[in-house]
């Protein structure tokens, strides 16, 4: 199931802010197509910076970040991309963050279709805000159906709950038709039940769509449960890279619900 092709290949990446110690210190990491990787480690270890450098928001001091934007495209080095080329790459990398990063003043479908901004002209974006076409609304509805929020299509975003918020963010990422999903602490602000639901959804969608998933987490138990691989980062270096240990984290450590929660979502 996992393609030997790597979607992301990071080679000796060093990122430094100002003159301080490097946040990432000659870090190397290869992620294969369709792989679901949990990135764990204490706060300040460099997880967020790692993610931000993959889509070119944090600038590398040295090293290379090769990302393959589609099956047909050759790998591109993010550290060398600027302007339109960088935006083209970003348009295929979905990002879900811990913070609430939807535009609350817009309707849900508008936030969802923000995922298409990378392939739309600014003029089309403007037209969509005032006169969305039926096709565009259908696309938004389809993405929302995947996250179980189809009924919220025209609701104002500020009325959503925390869990719904993250689902809409996932729907927005799906509209990007991503090859890679980057989730930075996507469940940090949710309660344990909601956290499991959102992770199960994310992991399930990644598997179904053969999308590579990179997700940082605070809770080791969740990392072992939902991912194919666990990478631990400390002081900007990879200190552990292994398969998950599912048996060491029995389900009852995650929730008091006796029903295995994977079963809850298979219905």
């Amino acid at each position: 199931m996992v393609d030997s092709n790597s979607v992301v290949e990071i080679q000796d990446l060093t990122v430094r802010f100002g003159k301080a110690e490097p946040v990432l210190n000659r870090l190397s990491l290869r992620v294969a197509r369709g792989e679901r990787v949990a990135v764990v480690g204490p706060s300040g270890a460099g997880k967020t910076t790692l993610f931000r450098s993959i889509n070119g928001f944090a600038r590398a001091e040295s090293g290379r970040i090769l990302v393959q934007r589609s099956l047909a495209a050759p790998p591109e080095d993010v550290t060398e991309l600027r302007g339109a080329a960088l935006r083209r790459l970003r348009s295929r990398i979905g990002v879900i963050s811990q913070r609430h990063d939807l535009v609350e003043a817009l309707a849900v479908y508008q936030n969802v279709m923000a995922g298409a901004l990378g392939r739309w002209s600014a003029l089309r974006a403007l037209r969509f805000l005032f006169l969305p076409s039926a096709g565009e609304l259908d696309e938004a509805a389809a993405a929302l159906r995947e996250v179980g929020l189809e009924h919220k299509l025209r609701v104002r975003t500020e009325s959503l709950s925390g869990g719904e918020h993250q689902r809409v963010a996932i729907a927005r990422a799906l509209v990007q038709r991503p090859v890679l999903l980057i989730a930075d602490e996507p469940v940090a602000s949710l309660d344990p039940d909601r956290a499991e639901q959102v992770l199960a959804l994310l992991s399930g969608l990644a598997e179904k769509r053969q999308v590579t998933l990179l997700c940082s987490l605070h809770q080791p138990a969740l990392a072992e449960q939902f991912f194919d691989r666990v990478v631990e980062i400390r002081h900007g270096e990879v200190v552990d890279d292994r398969a998950p240990r599912r048996d060491s984290y029995p389900l009852n450590r995650l929730s008091h619900d006796p029903v295995p929660f994977a079963a809850r979502f298979s219905a």
Binding site: F57, R87, L126, L129
Partner: peptide
């Protein structure tokens, strides 16, 4: 936060203005 999120979809700065800056500041 929302502005960065929009930029990470590969949106141009003008699109970010339409979808993020103006609604945020309406």
């Amino acid at each position: 936060n929302p502005v960065t999120a929009l930029r990470s979809t590969g949106a141009s700065r003008l699109s970010v203005a339409f979808f993020g800056l103006i609604p945020l500041r309406l």
